[in-house]
Design a protein around this nucleic acid. Structure first.
Length: 102
DNA sequence: TTCGCAATTCGTCATCCGGT
DNA sequence: ACCGGATGACGAATTGCGAA
């Protein structure tokens, strides 16, 4: 697929993020954190939240990619039919235009 | 039935890139 | 500069299938 430094794949649609995944609870405000234990808990919570979001993002990314590939495949099918017709048409015109050698 | 293998799916990490 | 979303890469888990 697109190289890391390449252009954006056409199947990517950047949508604004809205709701949090179900079951995710916002943390208390940072100002209310004190002990190292609380800080550690907060770090763990943040990590779990990040993993959960990335998991969902990966699913969505793969879904879009599949859709994109399907779309490309159906376009290939259409173009193949079109190409076949054009080749046939060309052969017909060649027959009509070629001088009779006889 | 079960074993081995290939293909597919999934979760995670690393990185890039755009927005603030 | 920092943050967060998108995605490629990778390894682990799962699935499907033919051979024994």
């Amino acid at each position: 697929m697109a190289a890391a430094t390449g252009d954006m794949p056409t199947y990517q649609i950047r949508a604004p993020t809205t709701a949090l995944p179900q079951g995710v609870v916002m943390a208390t405000s940072p100002g209310s954190l004190h002990s190292p234990q609380q800080l550690a808990q907060e770090a763990t919570r943040k990590r779990e939240l990040r993993l959960m979001k990335n998991r969902e993002a990966a699913k969505e990314c793969r879904r879009r990619k599949k859709e994109y590939v399907k779309c490309l495949e159906s376009r290939v099918a259409v173009l193949e039919v079109q190409n076949k017709k054009l080749i046939e048409e060309l052969e017909t015109l060649k027959d009509i235009c070629s001088p009779k050698t006889d």
